[in-house]
């Protein structure tokens, strides 16, 4: 794919988050978080509800006001980028994805090209190629003319991912893309994300399912009460102790597989 020819990206696009603190009033949501995301990496961000995962994602994108720290794409502060330059570098799939209108699937996917100036009446050959490729990868080509309100949850999730992929950004940040999906659709979504990483993309994804995270991620970032408490490959960081510390559950971990036994 010609993703890396996209103006916002380059083969070496890297996201560098340093020492980020996010506060609402006096309450810290994220405390001095640092991590790096490189091409070819699929990094899962895990932690209990309220650990600050979404705030950290938004701060990494420059959408959340930070009290300290900086998020950089290839050495450039994300908050200094124009919204469209940022969108060309990082595709973002937020957790809440309410559609205001029952638009057609192809028009939703096309919104991924917004930063390139595309709209239903103005589509370049390049936009068309990007949208078609994204719809093919997410297997929604046959739904192109359907209205969003006629889709199942699994289909809709793939439409949103197609929208994100259509941007052909070198980095993808996704907040719980598998939420409320059945197991088969969870795997299909993760397979699409994995393929994007194999093509040289970098992904930071919030997952609630630790088993899914352990299966797909090259690294897991563990968050608890606003802090990153561990960052490393699943084999090293997924332990019985960590499950107890971070999630407060008793779990059995062996060879990368996990069984949650009871709440502590």
């Amino acid at each position: 794919m010609d993703r890396h020819a996209a103006p916002g990206g380059s083969r070496m696009t890297k996201l560098d988050v340093q020492d980020i603190t996010v506060e609402v009033g006096a309450t810290p949501l994220v405390k001095q978080a640092s991590f790096t995301l490189r091409p070819g990496e699929l990094v899962a961000l895990v932690g209990p509800n309220g650990a600050g995962k979404t705030s950290l994602l938004r701060a990494s994108l420059g959408l959340e006001l930070v009290s300290t720290g900086i998020s950089q794409v290839n050495g450039r502060d994300v908050t200094a980028l124009s919204p469209s330059a940022r969108a060309k570098a990082i595709a973002y799939l937020p957790q809440q994805r309410p559609l205001a209108w029952p638009s057609r699937v192809r028009d939703i996917a096309l919104l991924g090209r917004f930063a390139y100036g595309a709209s239903p009446g103005r589509i370049t050959a390049r936009d068309q190629t990007a949208v078609s490729a994204a719809m093919q990868k997410t297997d929604i080509g046959h739904l192109a003319d359907r209205r969003a309100d006629t889709l199942s949850g699994g289909e809709l999730a793939r439409v949103h991912i197609a929208r994100a992929l259509a941007a052909q950004a070198p980095i993808l940040i996704a907040d719980e893309p598998t939420a409320a999906l059945d197991p088969r659709h969870q795997l299909r979504v993760m397979d699409v994300i994995k393929a994007y990483v194999s093509d040289g993309g970098a992904v930071l994804v919030v997952l609630h399912d630790i088993i899914l995270a352990a299966h797909y991620a090259s690294r897991i970032i563990w968050m608890q009460s606003g802090r990153i408490v561990a960052d490393g490959p699943p084999q090293e960081t997924l332990t019985t102790d960590r499950m107890a510390d971070v999630f407060g559950v008793k779990a059995a971990v062996s060879g990368g597989t996990l069984r949650v036994l009871e709440a502590l």
Partner: peptide, 21 residues
């Protein structure tokens, strides 16, 4: 503001994500 209105179909969060100010 036309294009921005189309972008807002996705919600404000995703609309910011695709590059809307």
């Amino acid at each position: 503001t036309k294009r921005g209105l189309t972008a807002l179909t996705l919600g404000e969060e995703a609309a910011s994500g695709i590059g809307l100010d």
